[in-house]
């Protein structure tokens, strides 16, 4: 993993958000390969392709047309070879219901999209440096919502 870039996948329907996401990773020192998909349907299609190399971490927007992030999360957790991918919820809102539901359905972390680019960079950097193997085993509700 030292030499190999961290494979990051983002599913978000908003073009600007995808842009910020990509730019933020470009400015991070850690070597990453960022993949972007435009909605839930595309995401599931991408993940279930045989040729796809699975991401190390998946960033999932909740509010997407056709197939919402919640639907994707449910599907992923029900597919044997996908259910171990760490999922970071990446959403504009941080309503109690959304946080509660995604936590119950097995998401690993909840990120409220920051309104400041510097913060965004910091958040994303922190998320990809988390040792997920360790983090997943001790998932606690209190730490679920990432606060910077």
């Amino acid at each position: 993993m030292q030499n190999e870039p961290v494979r990051v996948l983002l599913a978000d329907d908003d073009e600007d958000d995808r842009l910020f996401f990509k730019e933020a990773f470009d400015e991070i020192k850690i070597k990453t390969s960022v993949n972007l998909v435009n909605n839930g349907v595309e995401l599931m299609k991408y993940l279930t392709q045989k040729s796809t190399q699975l991401p190390h971490i998946l960033f999932l927007d909740l509010n997407m047309p056709l197939k919402s992030g919640m639907d994707c999360l449910l599907e992923i957790k029900n597919i044997e070879h996908l259910k171990n991918i760490p999922v970071a919820i990446y959403s504009t809102s941080a309503s109690e219901e959304d946080i509660e539901e995604t936590f119950v359905q097995g998401a690993n972390i909840y990120i409220k999209k920051p309104s400041d680019f510097r913060t965004l960079r910091k958040v994303l950097e922190e998320v990809i440096t988390i040792n997920w193997q360790y983090h997943t085993s001790g998932l606690i509700r209190e730490n679920f919502l990432l606060s910077i």
Binding site: D14, D16, D17, F20, T92, S93, K113, S115, D116, F117
Partner: peptide, 13 residues
């Protein structure tokens, strides 16, 4: 909130 957040991000950018 969505467009506002983007405005904020762009401003910070």
């Amino acid at each position: 909130q969505e467009p506002l957040r983007k405005i904020q991000t762009f401003i910070s950018r």
